[in-house]
């Protein structure tokens, strides 16, 4: 049996479908991260520390 993707077939469909398959898991992971960040910010807030903004995070990632 041929066990490979024939080159003239479009792999695009599979790329869209796999996103739908894993969407629930990814959304859950995202909500978990948001909750974790909210708790971290709240704890830092108790100690009077400044929140880290998304802007600073992004800049930090690309200029590190």
């Amino acid at each position: 049996m041929l066990d490979f993707i024939l080159l003239y077939l479009d792999p695009g469909t599979g790329s869209l479908i796999v996103q739908a398959i894993i969407a629930g898991f990814l959304a859950l992971a995202f909500y978990f991260k948001m909750a974790k960040n909210a708790v971290t910010d709240w704890v830092l807030g108790l100690f009077g520390k400044k929140k880290i903004t998304e802007e600073e995070l992004t800049n930090d990632e690309t200029t590190q």
């Binding site: 490979f4 993707i5 024939l6 077939l9 479009d10 792999p11 695009g12 469909t13 599979g14 790329s15 869209l16 479908i17 796999v18 996103q19 739908a20 398959i21 894993i22 969407a23 629930g24 898991f25 990814l26 959304a27 859950l28 992971a29 995202f30 909500y31 991260k33």
Partner: peptide
């Protein structure tokens, strides 16, 4: 998934579940 759906029409992809904004953000995070 690419292998399984290599023969599917793109219609199949259009009819699949929607990807919420949270899932999209989760995809980028992942």
């Amino acid at each position: 998934s690419q292998k399984r759906h290599a023969n599917s029409e793109n219609e199949a992809a259009k009819n699949t579940r929607k990807i919420s904004r949270a899932a999209m953000m989760g995809l980028i995070d992942s």
